[in-house]
Amino acid sequence: MSDVVLETRGLVKHFPARRGAVRAVDGVDLHLRRGETLGVVGESGCGKSTLARLLVALEKPTRGEIRVRGEDLTRLKGAALRRARRNIQMVLQDPYTSLNPRMTVGAIIGEPYDIHPDAVPRTGKARAVQELLDIVGLNPDHLNRYPHQFSGGQRQRIGIARALALRPEIIVCDEPVSALDVSIQAQVINLLEGLQRELGLSYVFIAHDLSVVRHISDRVAVMYLGKIVETGDHAAIYEQPTHPYTQALLSAVPVPDPRLRGRRDHIMLEGEVPSPADPPSGCRFRTRCWKAQPACADHEPLLEIRQRSPHPSACHFAEIRDVMRRF
């Protein structure tokens, strides 16, 4: 596939811990095509935020490759790495902490150009910053204000403008709307979608909110304890999930429609996610899974297309169950 802009192979990140290691990301293969949005969902501790930090080279992976347009990001250093960073940027979760409170909005959005002077458009930095403000829907005259003078949604727009400054092809969005109010979420989601259309961006959209991910994603990867357990296009994941974890996750998401009360497929999972420092052997989900057999403890299921799963699913007993259907 020539239009793949980002690809990871066998990506692993272990953090040293008191005994052993926290296996935050433990063998992730994914790819992202030009202009598409890949949603990554999972609960806390599944490694999705570490994955985001790996993708933008904030962390060095323990093993594996991250190829951006064919070039392995993990092997780059110094000037080459800095150059490569221009192509992959990130929007952070918390708009209240992700902007330096002592810099004006103009300085924040202009900083990418200070770091990469050769990226300044011919029209000049000041003009470029104003254009960015305009693109994200902020008043271009506001560049002398400080972040605290803006609301959460506006700050997230500032963060998006900063990520756009170097004209990247890929933007990793790490929970970009989870800190925002419902009515503001919609504004930011629409902005991200609009920017994607206009600028041909590719997104890795990391979130715990499955409704938001469904709305924005073309394809979805579901993570559990450092691994992708199921992946496919959004219809496959949401309408024909085959992995028990995906099914449980979907069935637990509340839907704003009281008519569905008692008419939905509710799968109540036992317990909570085990510690990534000491994940279960074999299939990591087996400790909470109602389908688990003794074999699940011995053989780790691979993420692959199976007889009863038309899309890749890491479950020995993968089988379609439409948890979204109504009774």
Binding site: Q185, E193, R214, H215, D257, M324
Partner: peptide
């Protein structure tokens, strides 16, 4: 009404979300 319409739904993909303009 506007609040309910601006929520992304799990049970269908939906088109651009309708938006409540401005800020609280």
């Amino acid at each position: 009404k506007a609040l309910l319409e601006s929520i992304p739904r799990l049970d269908f993909k939906g088109q651009p979300l309708s938006v409540i303009r401005g800020l609280p």
